[in-house]
Write a protein that binds this DNA or RNA. Structure first.
Lengths: 219, 219
DNA sequence: CCGCATCCTCATGGATACTG
DNA sequence: CAGTATCCATGAGGATGCGG
């Protein structure tokens, strides 16, 4: 008798009645969570995704998007004739576990950037994750310019958020390298060192409201 | 000229300066997070891991354990002559992102167990994750018996925790199937239905302190 | 038994080329 | 622009062997 594949579902599921395992059945494959990260700030085109996720094979990206769509975490929009990939609300709920994973991985950034790829947009996920818990009764907005891109970090009574906003910028603007920005948000670098290596203009109190848990030390 | 593989590091790293990507470089491979889940309640033997993670190839388990050890999230202990695999403190810190992922995936359990594998121990990760936020000024302990195994869920002022404890059991004991237990913890099933399909003995207030956000409704 | 290593097969991922 | 098609390298799954 020849060998018979007796598995009725040869799909790559763990086959476990466990919420973590079933999550990983959906988002555990290579590249999937990074695609979600790309889409968290907003919808993107196929070619944008491909160029942003350096190294992903085009067929793989196409297949991932298809299964993510089938799993209800991504949907295709037709924006002015072209296809745009967007997260569904269910897909956007992945922000929480991804922030938690990012916080766990933040110490791994201490080795520096090296020749790794970097997209300033990624900070819109990382900064709120690292600043989680920081609040401000009166909203404060800080501009951060890194790697040629400027984004806004906002702290209000609900906590931190970040986004790339074109147009009007807050007058408080921090200019720094990606390493400095994440080191600052992770608490590994002090505000003074960050400003010294990069630059800052505007009201210093904004800077402290965002990055300071302790008040600024005057030496 | 023949083709040269010009990548100096063919390793499976995403090569991105991003905390999430660097986390996934370490825990993103298949089976890795499930091994962590197994080890969260306590150290285990190689063969225990292999039998609990049904379907993992033995060479793969060995290799994963090696790289996890190299990455500082697992270490080998010599407990009475035999090898025991345990999480390092850094590895145990993965509990938070794993709980977040488990909360995201909890709705995926609604389809029921089917013929999926199930280990009662897994509930010691799932129950605190789903009950996160529940506190009790005076500690309460509830026994849960499912699938032939009894464990303890404890709620105190710091929040929920769960563990398998041999020996003395709380007098409050809920008996239910895995589906009912997770449905109850996820809020998809009411206490009355759970008790009706399974069984409960002890002080009902314990049950409500654990699973109720709203007080019990008397109809 | 426990803790793997080896061998083999097949599914998946990666790189490149090509197409409506 | 948004993928498909193709080919090859790698990784996963399964069976078995093997020293302690």
């Amino acid at each position: 008798m020849e060998k018979v594949n007796q598995r009725s579902k040869p799909l790559k599921t763990y086959g476990q009645f466990c919420a973590l395992a079933r999550s990983l059945d959906i988002v555990g494959e290579r590249w999937t969570l990074l695609i979600v990260r790309e889409l968290l700030p907003g919808p993107m085109r196929y070619t944008e995704l491909k160029s942003s996720l350096d190294g992903i094979a085009t067929n793989l990206l196409a297949e991932r998007l298809r299964t993510m769509e089938a799993n209800g975490i991504v949907e295709r929009h037709l924006r002015d004739g072209a296809v745009a990939f967007a997260l569904t609300p269910r897909g956007a709920e992945l922000r929480e576990p991804m922030e938690a994973l990012g916080r766990w991985g933040a110490p791994l950034l201490a080795t520096g950037r090296g020749d790794d790829a970097f997209e300033p947009r990624w900070l819109t996920l990382a900064l709120p994750a690292l600043l989680r818990g920081t609040t401000s009764p009166t909203p404060v907005e800080l501009g951060i310019e890194t790697d040629g891109c400027t984004m806004v970090v906002r702290i209000d009574e609900r906590g931190p958020s970040a986004f790339v906003r074109s147009g009007d910028m807050p007058e408080a603007l921090l200019v720094a390298s990606p390493e400095i920005v994440v080191g600052l948000a992770a608490g590994a670098i002090g505000i003074e060192e960050a400003v010294a290596t990069g630059g800052f203009q505007g009201d210093p109190r904004v800077l402290h409201a965002v990055f300071d848990t302790a008040p600024p030390r005057d030496n």
